[in-house]
């Protein structure tokens, strides 16, 4: 009886959690700047300042750049997930939720859902700005759906990694540190420039890290080119990392709280 009742409420409870942390996102100017304004500024910088000197073999640099900018925006949001989780843990909000008759994992899933929804909003804003800057795509509905799916998967992967950091951190600074290595991944990939121009060592790293196949897949989908093996490499990276991070984060969550 009891368990049936709890299950019915799981999604309602998660909805309450979602509203709560979406308010956190919208009321933090800092978060909005980092996840939306910064990537847009970066896009302007790369297209109008550096873009002229970068040879990508595409007609418009903004078309080449956009997938990478989207991943940068998602990467920038990861640190805030750690930060919000850490504060919930430290300030006793999780204790309050856990002493209430709600599903134990609802608070954590609420943060995951918030990450997905807030990233979706910021990515739409960035794409609209890119359209103003001349970005055009020949992708059909199904391709856009596939792009949305890959971006959601990438978001969840980074969010679960960020959750581990937030839940196990001892200080606010520690919770945010995870953001730095994640920020670097899109920079050392084919997101901004083709890997062919890189020195051998860097090139090897760039071509064998998760961001490059994701960027290449999204690019192929945007411009109706064959996606080839890249999509499977991208999915394998995301799903493997996400699954491990999920298991680990859940273990920390159950143990610490």
């Amino acid at each position: 009886m009891e368990t049936i009742k709890m299950k019915n409420y799981f999604f309602i409870d998660m909805g309450v959690m979602l509203i709560r942390s979406m308010r956190h996102v919208f009321r933090s100017l800092d978060t909005i700047i980092t996840v939306t304004i910064m990537p847009i500024a970066m896009m302007l910088l790369f297209v109008y300042v550096l873009g002229g000197a970068i040879k990508t073999g595409t007609d418009k640099y903004v078309n080449y750049l956009l997938p990478g900018i989207l991943l940068v925006a998602i990467a920038n949001s990861a640190g805030y997930v750690s930060y919000r989780l850490f504060l919930d843990k430290q300030r006793g909000i999780f204790e309050r939720f856990h002493s209430m008759p709600i599903a134990r994992s609802a608070p954590l899933w609420g943060h995951m859902l918030t990450s997905l929804v807030s990233n979706a909003i910021s990515l739409v804003v960035i794409i609209l700005v890119a359209l103003l800057m001349g970005f055009r795509s020949s992708a059909g509905f199904l391709s856009w759906l596939a792009i949305a799916g890959i971006l959601a998967l990438f978001t969840l992967t980074l969010t679960w990694i960020a959750a581990i950091a937030g839940l196990s951190a001892k200080s606010v600074d520690g919770a945010g540190v995870i953001a730095y290595p994640i920020h670097f991944l899109p920079l050392i990939s084919s997101a901004f420039v083709p890997t062919t121009s890189m020195p051998a060592g860097v090139k090897a790293f760039a071509e064998h890290q998760p961001v490059t196949p994701i960027v290449e897949t999204i690019r192929a989908l945007l411009y109706n080119q064959p996606v080839g093996n890249q999509i499977w490499v991208a999915l394998a990276w995301c799903i493997t990392i996400m699954f491990c991070a999920y298991l680990f984060a859940m273990r920390v969550y159950r143990k610490r709280l």
Partner: peptide
Amino acid sequence: SLTGQFAAVDEVLTGRENLVMIARL
């Protein structure tokens, strides 16, 4: 119901939003 050692209120939310949140939960 538990009122822990440190006031576990959500500082970003208003007083009203805090109460409505718990009432929904």
